[in-house]
Every structure is written in structure tokens, then in C-alpha cells.
Design a protein around this nucleic acid. Structure first.
Length: 205
DNA sequence: AGGACGTAGCCCCGATAGAT
DNA sequence: ATCTATCGGGGCTACGTCCT
């Protein structure tokens, strides 16, 4: 049953964005829950990122309320997703083994493109990404650090990888593998886009 | 009046530390 | 090794506030 988001904002675009696709009508709550789980976030964590109350996430997911366009957009910002992507995302109806390039879920933004494989797979234990770092792309001066391990291979371009006190510029065919608890950073200081494939576990996106 | 949203608090579950 | 208490995270509901 179609469950278009709330129209408290009386935005005429709302209805059309709800998607005419036959199966896109899955309710907003189920869609949100599915995507939140795919990103490995709890309701509280997503609420914190989105700047809304955790109860809001819970009520939307349980169908207890229809979020306004503004609220939904804020929540989707926490998932690095836009409204179009949200409503065009297809809920999995069964276990899948293959994904078209166009089906990889974009979870990056700006100069950093992270296209996640099998974002809709429940209980996924691997985070595999097709990454594109545009010239100047940078994961940030504040180094990343989280539980797990990650590795990757540069397919084209160059990529400066900092891990702890070590730093190296990797080129086509080069690879990295490190304990993710070590502060790390990725930068494309070259003039060409850098394309690479990475994998990490546990999935933190 | 009704819906969206926030706060407060409840219950459940797993991890951890201390006692036996 | 096992049991118990404690703590924190997770999801949820009840209720109040605000806005249309």
C-alpha cells in the first residue's frame, strides 16, 4: 500500500516523488528501517546524525506517523541519501546474489563516491565499496578510526593513504590492508579521479 | 481537532565485573 | 566454572507541545 510521506509542508512535489513505480509503494517506515539496517545504524545513531529524536525514527518505522518532507529529508541526510534515491530504492524480496552497477547504493557525497554492494542484504557482514575519489577528495583532517579491518585496491588514478604515522601514495594495482582502529585517512591529491575497490568488516556503513 | 515531533521512561537483551 | 548484579544500548510507548 502506498504511503506517501506527510504533506504538512504542502509541497506539490511530494506526491510525484512518492514514485509511480509499481513496487515503490512499500511504506516509508519499512523502507527507512531497511535502509537504516543496511547502513548498520541503530535508531538512536540515525536520530543523532539526523538531528531528530530516536522516537521519531521509531514512530516512522512502525508506521505510527507520516514524516513531513523536511523531517524525512533530514533523516535521509543522516543516511547520505536524497529523497529521489529513497523512493527509487527497491526493497529486497528475497536473497540476491547479483547486482547491476546501477543498483549499488550511493552512500558518499560531494567528491567522495562510495557505492555499496548488497546494501539491501540483511545481516551483511562485509562492506564492499566501489569508490571514486575526485581530485581533492579527502576523508578529512580528523582521521577515521573504528573497529574492524579494511583493505582495497587502486584501479586507476592515485590515492594517498595515511595509516597511523605511515603515509603512502598508491597507484594502479597497489593495495592497502590495515586494522581500522588505527587512525587513517584517504586523499586524492592527483589531477585525475581515483577509482578503487575496498572491503571492510564489520560493515560500518 | 488532528498530525508531527520531542521528552521521558519503560522493558529487553547482551556484555562485563565481581563473588562464590 | 557458574551465578548474580550492574550497566549500557536498543526499540518502543505514553504523553505533552507546537503548528496548521
Amino acid at each position: 500500500m502506498a504511503n506517501p510521506i506527510g504533506t504538512s509542508g504542502s509541497d506539490p512535489q511530494t506526491d510525484q516523488s512518492a514514485g509511480e513505480g509499481a513496487d515503490v509503494g512499500a511504506d516509508v517506515g519499512a523502507r527507512l528501517r531497511h535502509l537504516r539496517n543496511a547502513h548498520g545504524l541503530s535508531q538512536r545513531e540515525l536520530a543523532r546524525r539526523a538531528g531528530v529524536a530516536n522516537a521519531t525514527i521509531s514512530q516512522i518505522e512502525s508506521g505510527g506517523s507520516n514524516p513531513s518532507v523536511g523531517a524525512l529529508k533530514r533523516i535521509l541526510d543522516g543516511l547520505s541519501m536524497d529523497l529521489a534515491g529513497f523512493f527509487s530504492f527497491e526493497l529486497a524480496t528475497g536473497e540476491r546474489h547479483f547486482y547491476k552497477a546501477s543498483e549499488l547504493l550511493e552512500i558518499g557525497k560531494d567528491k567522495l563516491s562510495y557505492r555499496l554492494v548488497a546494501a539491501d542484504r540483511p545481516g551483511r557482514s562485509i562492506q564492499m565499496l566501489h569508490e571514486t575519489l575526485m581530485p581533492g577528495a579527502d576523508t578529512g583532517k580528523i582521521l577515521l578510526s573504528h573497529a574492524g579491518e579494511e583493505c582495497g585496491i587502486v584501479l586507476s588514478g592515485s590515492l594517498e593513504v595515511s595509516v597511523g604515522e605511515m603515509r603512502q601514495v598508491l597507484r594502479q594495482g597497489d593495495a592497502w590492508y590495515f586494522d581500522s582502529t588505527i587512525p587513517h585517512r584517504f586523499r586524492n591529491k592527483g589531477a585525475e579521479p581515483c577509482i578503487c575497490i575496498s572491503a571492510g568488516t564489520p560493515p560500518t556503513f
